[in-house]
Amino acid sequence: MTIGVSRCFVAATETEPALSFYRDLLELEVINDVANGEHRWITLAAPGQSDFSIVLSNYLADAPSDTEVLRGLLAKGALSAAHFRTDDLDGLFARLSQAGVEVLEQPTDQFWGVRDCAVRDPSGNVVRIDQA
Rank of each mutant, 00 (worst) to 15 (best):
L19M: 01
L28F: 15
Q98P: 03
D88S: 07
V10D: 07
I42A: 07
S6G: 13
L60P: 03
D116M: 06
K76D: 06
L96S: 13
Q106V: 14
L74N: 02
V5H: 09
R23P: 07
G124W: 01
T67I: 11
T2L: 14
N36F: 13
G113E: 00
C8T: 11
Q131P: 10
A82C: 01
R71D: 00
P47I: 00
T15V: 11
D88Y: 05
N32Y: 11
A94R: 10
I31N: 14
V69N: 12
G113Q: 02
L44Y: 03
I42N: 09
L74K: 05
G91D: 10
V69P: 05
A18S: 15
D51V: 07
A18E: 02
I3Q: 13
P47C: 03
S53C: 11
V5W: 08
M1D: 03
D62H: 12
D62E: 11
S123K: 01
S50K: 08
K76L: 10
L79D: 09
Y59L: 05
F9M: 15
A78C: 10
V30S: 08
T15A: 06
T86G: 09
T13F: 01
R95T: 14
A11I: 00
D51K: 10
I31H: 12
V126L: 14
S97K: 15
E38K: 14
V55N: 04
I3D: 08
V126R: 15
Q110L: 11
R85H: 12
T13R: 06
R95H: 15
Y22S: 09
P122H: 00
D121G: 09
D90R: 09
R23C: 05
M1R: 07
Q110G: 11
G48M: 07
A12F: 00
A12P: 07
I129E: 02
Q49C: 03
D109T: 05
G37C: 06
H39G: 01
E68P: 01
T2P: 10
Q49H: 05
K76R: 15
E68K: 03
F21S: 04
I54K: 09
G91I: 07
A11T: 00
P17W: 06
D130N: 15
D24N: 09
D90G: 02
I54C: 05
C117D: 06
L19Y: 00
P107I: 02
E29L: 15
P47G: 02
E27D: 14
N58L: 02
I42P: 10
L96W: 11
V126S: 10
L25W: 02
R128N: 05
C117K: 13
R115Y: 00
E68N: 02
R7K: 11
D62L: 10
E29Y: 11
D130Y: 13
R128M: 04
S123P: 03
A132S: 15
A78T: 04
V10T: 11
H39K: 09
V5F: 11
H83D: 13
E105H: 13
T15W: 02
G91H: 13
V10G: 12
L104I: 06
E29I: 12
D62A: 14
I31T: 12
E105K: 15
L19W: 06
V101P: 08
T43P: 08
A63F: 12
D116K: 04
A18H: 06
E14K: 07
A61M: 03
D116V: 01
